[in-house]
Design a protein around this nucleic acid. Structure first.
Length: 479
RNA sequence: CCGGGUGUGGCGCAGUUGGUAGCGCGCUUGACUGGGGGUCAAGAGGCCGCAUGUUCAAGUCAUGUCACUCGGACCA
């Protein structure tokens, strides 16, 4: 088999048109479909199965760190939304409103939640009284609505699924620790489950969340070398609590405003998985998140004993706790090969009469296309090993992409040139002045992705204004 | 939100000066096949995105609208 031969004709090559490739994958892998309202998407069973696995992994981690799930209302009265000034300014332009109940116009219009900080705050105002009530570690899985102008599958929906964690703490230190802990949860999840290497850091004031005092982010590099913010956590200080009059009596019986955080990951990250690991044959899924980890394909299944043997393989692999599918439909083997490649199944196991005779099967990696003859006696040890190879291979490939396309620069012109020629991330020093950040956007075409935790010393001055530099910033073109 | 493009069976497309819709793939049934998208045969499936208008007559012309898409602006 020619490994680099293109086998799936329906998908546009990513080198030809990356955007088209991306939407082709979303549709042909049956992840998503359009509905009749712009930006409101249908997550098909296979796409939703990926989200279910993401939810499972994250939810387990949240609960392990003491968080509880809740369900808040979907509608926010306008007066409630307006209590925190920066927040409403940030979100008002993209709110959708409910103005009628039945046939009667409402006295106060209701916003369909774009995020739920205000709802949590209103509730907390009622239930928080004492230092004994803190901390409150809440999370909810829900959908939110933001009236975006440009929409794209997974990357920018108007309605999207996410989790939003909201917590309340007695002290700033504790809240900041929570914010950092949750970012680390996201980073660990991205790297170890989704095989997506991340850069951890803070957003600049210009890029931070509306109403937040500090916004943390993990940034990933996509195959086209653009940046995708894959998870974010916010430290709010006590700003919302003051606006919503949330106070508690501390041990000295003083009334104090608590400190607040929020953090979220959305279905957007599925777009990240697609653009990090996918190739010209379609989707490629890391085994740890794949709805189907191994597909077992019988060859010449009408021949005696083939279906029985294949069924047995499915059962043996399932007994290992793997997510396995046997495809016994009457499509041709070639059709099935292409189908499961398009859907990104990490490992394919072929079993036919010749294999049965020789007591082995053939395992084929989705990433390398490499065929491995596996003795049926070694099935239980060999298949998990091969899956592990795929998982690690994907991470290393993505890491290589990130490292090969990360540059340093000491001038604005050099930054522009690097990004124009190669895309990717450029590290420079920065004075901290928003004017210089805007200049980078206008003259080099990049926005600040983050101020990474891992700082490097690239120079002493800001490349834009020449004043003394405060920090190193990573710049890039973002989704 | 501004500018360009596109909406015709499930998917991809054709449809001339307006005259009552066609092709490929897929789908259904059967047989033969089966280690990279098989072969043959017989079938089913369409208010031409939606609305209004012009006309004896609209997929085709006009206006509006909705969606998709590519740029740009906007966006945690």
């Amino acid at each position: 088999m020619a490994k680099d031969k293109k086998q799936v004709e329906q998908i546009t090559d990513m080198e030809v048109d990356f955007t088209k490739w991306y939407t082709d994958v979303c549709k042909k892998a049956e992840l998503i479909d359009y509905s009749s309202v712009k930006g409101l998407m249908i997550l098909r069973p296979y796409g939703y199965a990926i989200w279910e696995n993401i939810m499972g992994e994250l939810d387990r981690r949240f609960k392990a760190t003491g968080h509880q799930n809740v369900s808040m209302p979907m509608l926010i009265p306008e007066s409630l939304l307006q209590k925190e000034k920066d927040h409403v300014e940030g979100f008002a332009p993209e709110c959708a409103w409910v103005t009628f109940g039945g046939t009667e116009e409402l006295e106060e219009r209701l916003c369909i939640r774009p995020t739920s900080e205000t709802l949590f705050c209103e509730h907390w105002h009622n239930i928080v009284h004492s230092w004994r009530d803190l901390p409150l570690l809440y999370n909810q899985w829900c959908s939110v609505l933001r009236w975006e102008k440009t929409t794209r599958p997974f990357l920018r929906h108007r309605e999207f699924l996410w989790q939003e964690g909201h917590t309340l703490h007695a002290t700033a230190e504790e809240a900041i620790a929570e914010t950092e802990q949750q970012l680390e949860t996201y980073a660990d999840f991205c790297e170890n489950i989704l095989a997506m290497p991340v850069i951890r850091g803070c957003k600049t004031d210009k890029e931070k969340f509306a109403g937040a005092e500090r916004t943390y982010t993990i940034e990933c590099m996509m195959h086209d070398r653009k940046a995708l913010q894959s998870g974010t956590s916010h430290y709010f200080g006590d700003g919302f609590c003051k606006a919503f009059d949330i106070t508690f009596a501390d041990k000295d019986n003083k009334q104090i405003n608590p400190h607040q955080t929020s953090w979220g990951v959305s279905t957007r990250i599925i777009g990240g998985i697609i653009m990090t690991h996918g190739d010209n044959n379609g989707l490629v899924l890391p085994p740890k998140i794949a709805p189907i980890q191994v597909v077992v394909l019988p060859i010449a299944q009408h021949k005696e004993g083939v279906i029985e043997k294949a069924t047995e393989l499915v059962a043996r692999l399932e007994a290992l706790g793997l997510r396995v599918k046997g495809d016994f439909s009457d499509n041709s083997p070639g059709w099935k090969f292409a189908e499961y490649e398009m859907k990104g199944v990490p490992l394919r196991v072929e079993i036919g009469p010749k294999d049965i005779e020789e007591n082995h099967c053939v395992a084929v990696s989705r990433v390398s296309g490499e065929k491995t003859i596996v003795s049926l006696d070694d099935l239980e040890t060999k298949i998990p090993e091969l899956l592990n190879d795929v998982q690690n291979g994907l991470f290393n490939k993505a890491k290589q992409n990130l490292e090969e396309h990360s540059y340093s620069a000491t001038s604005l012109d050099a930054t522009r040139q690097l990004v124009e020629e190669n895309g990717g991330f450029v590290k420079t020093m920065w004075c901290g002045d928003e004017a210089c950040e805007i200049a980078m956007k206008e003259r080099a075409g990049v926005t600040s992705r983050c101020i990474p935790f891992q700082q490097e010393h690239i120079g002493d001055v800001c490349p834009v204004c020449g004043k003394p530099a405060k920090t190193m910033v990573i710049w890039g073109v973002a989704y």
